[in-house]
Every structure is written in structure tokens, then in C-alpha cells.
């Protein structure tokens, strides 16, 4: 049938156009990928060994425009922990996922009033405390739950309405709950889940 031949011709031309388009499209590359323990710097392994985690450690390398880092992810006391190292294995920080309700009342109050000023509506999805300090003090945090003399920040992922649109944001606050950074999170395309 002639119309089938016409449709085939049209589709071939169309596919060629799309190939051209796909070859042209360039995107910023930011990747996190799983690595084996053997690829982890010795210094990072030494710290993790000293932590005595009883759950399996998953290792990741994160690459972005500013460089790369190594991350160990593990569950401890039923909380997600992310321990970040430089690419040479120098400990940078520890992030622990917690419930918003667990924050001190003053900090929580300051975060809530900060969010109310920024957004028309918001709801919290994830809260992490980020601890920074010396290796010994960070080790004491893991082994003995001692968090004194550590620099604390909160990273909060939330769904919020801004400019009449619901969007995802990550805010960073200081120890007292004052918002110091607001970043918009771009959600990945859902086309292949919708059609």
C-alpha cells in the first residue's frame, strides 16, 4: 500500500532529524556512581574501620564540575549516615538523617519562620544534620554519640510553593536554624514513566 511507504519515508526522515538533534544536545554532567572497596583511598577505609559499623557500607564516587569526592553510605541506629571524604581520603563531614521533630525547639521555630517568609506553602521531605570537625571528634560522634565541639548545619529538602509553582528546594541553615542558602532542586524528567 502506498500510504505505508509514505509513512516509512516520513519516519526515516524524522529519525534522521532526531539523531541530529540528539547529537547536538549537551548537558552538564554530574554523576554519582557506586565503587568497590578496593577503589577507596586507604585513609577513608581506615576511618570507616575505626567506626565499627555493623551494617554493610556502600561506597560512591561523586563527580561534578568542581571535582570529585568519595562517600560512604551506611545505616546505623536505623538512621542513614553519609560520610564524605575528599578524593584522596581526607574526612570532610558526616551527615545523619533525622526527623524534623527531633530538632531543638528554638532551631525548629527559627527554621519554620524562615520558611514561612520564603514560601507560600511548604512541606519537609528530608532533614540531615551535617557535622564538621576534627577526625577524632567525628569518630567520637559515631562511636560514643558525643557531638560537642562539632560544627553543625542542617540540610533540609522540601516541597514548596514559590512563584505560584510547587518546586523542590534544599535549604541549608546554621546551627541556630537561620537559613543561609536556598537551592532549587531540578527533578528529572518523568516522560518515560508517564507514556
Amino acid at each position: 500500500m502506498e500510504w505505508i511507504t509514505d509513512i516509512r519515508r516520513m519516519l526515516v526522515s524524522f529519525a534522521l532529524l532526531l539523531c541530529f538533534y540528539a547529537a547536538q544536545s549537551q548537558e552538564k554532567v554530574e554523576r554519582e556512581y557506586r565503587i568497590k572497596e578496593g577503589e577507596v583511598p586507604a585513609e577513608a577505609l581506615k576511618f570507616i574501620d575505626a567506626c565499627n559499623f555493623d551494617k554493610k557500607i556502600k561506597w560512591f564516587r561523586e563527580e561534578n564540575e568542581s571535582g570529585s569526592s568519595i562517600e560512604a553510605k551506611v545505616r546505623r541506629q536505623n538512621r542513614r549516615h553519609s560520610i564524605e571524604f575528599s578524593k584522596t581520603g581526607v574526612l570532610e563531614d558526616i551527615e545523619i538523617e533525622i526527623d524534623f521533630e527531633e530538632l531543638p525547639a528554638n532551631t525548629k521555630g527559627k527554621i519554620i519562620s524562615g520558611l514561612d517568609e520564603l514560601f507560600a506553602k511548604w512541606s519537609i521531605r528530608k532533614v540531615q544534620i551535617q557535622y564538621k570537625g576534627t577526625t577524632d571528634k567525628l569518630l567520637a560522634l559515631i562511636r560514643e554519640d558525643v557531638n560537642t565541639s562539632l560544627q553543625k548545619r542542617y540540610e533540609i529538602v522540601l516541597k514548596a510553593k514559590k512563584d505560584r509553582r510547587l518546586q523542590m528546594f534544599q535549604i541549608t541553615t546554621g546551627q541556630d536554624g537561620e537559613i543561609v542558602e536556598v537551592q532549587k532542586i531540578d527533578l528529572r524528567s518523568t516522560d518515560n514513566l508517564e507514556y
Partner: peptide
């Protein structure tokens, strides 16, 4: 119902495989 799992890392980044 659809589930999409990255084969590397915790989300599907550019130039990565996934299972759906």
C-alpha cells in the same frame, strides 16, 4: 505501576543505564 532503578549509584545520571 512502573519502577525505575539505576544500575549505578542512587539515581539515573547522564550516561548511565537503568532498569524499568
Amino acid at each position: 505501576i512502573s519502577v525505575e532503578n539505576p544500575l549505578n549509584g542512587q539515581e539515573v545520571d547522564p550516561k548511565e543505564f537503568y532498569l524499568k
